[in-house]
Amino acid sequence: MSGANGRLQVFTSKWQAALLLLPTLALITVFLYYPFLETVQLSFYRIRVLGNQQWVGLEHYARLLESETYRNSLVVTVIFTVVTVTVSLLLSLLVSFLVHEADSLSDFYLIGLIWPYAMPLAVAGVVLDFIINPQLGVLTYALEAAVGFEFNWNTDGTLALAAVILAAVWQGLGYSIIFMTAALSQLPDSVTEAAELDGVSRLGRLFRVYVPLISPVLVFLVVLQTIGAFFGGFALIDLMTGGGPSNATNVLMFNLYEDAFTNSRFGYAAAQSVLLFGFVAVLMYVQLRVTDRYAYYGGA
């Protein structure tokens, strides 16, 4: 351990340290490492009822590679993730910028803008399911009356994905705004003054001056939101679309859940978990690499 930390290490009893660590280590062994390793093992078995398993080797992986449904789920997940993260971060950036620019009431705005962070996805799901319901929704009705657009997301796969993304963006805004407003508020006034003296327009100031300065936070958010979107959204899809129409919103996580807990294909679902782990590992690796690269940018 580092020198600074070394001065804090005032206790030396190894068994005391072990005792203090025991609860955490025991819990992560039983509920994290063991199930994680067991996932790999189960993926080699066919299990239709728990406790009754037959060895099938790599069959599940071969099936996943061939399966059109799975490939579709991968594509849907990537689209859901990319669009959700892009739209959500762009909107959060603009909104945070507005809060930063507001000379008064910024606390009030902040509360009004970040509360969706506390909103359960399931609540976002059921509320929007009704408000933008193709037949009964007041917003869908208003939209159709105003511009004649029928937001028929019950039958149109692309619109269904759009509806789920809308809900995800709405619920996810608060989190990004928290970080972005914090980062913006730490910028020294001199930066703003210099930009104004140079005659940089307001939006130019945001994108050419502020964005590079807060890029470490933005990168952190991109990675975090990407991982979140990749695994999240389950409640929204379960409550709004059930993966449909025709699998258009059947993200990887929903497909896994259905295979395991609706269709009782536990082994096949375990193989999907293993592949999911591969995706997390890659995303995390990218996170570390990217954060490293940006860590010194702008001195933040």
């Binding site: 039958t155 449909g244 025709s246 699998n247 258009a248 609706t262 269709n263």
Partner: peptide, 19 residues
């Protein structure tokens, strides 16, 4: 054995038809 999945494939196909 997997009658439920058979039924959901029927629905998936119909979704594609209406699409």
């Amino acid at each position: 054995y997997d009658h439920g999945e058979l039924r959901s494939e029927i629905v998936n196909g119909l979704d594609r038809m209406y699409g």
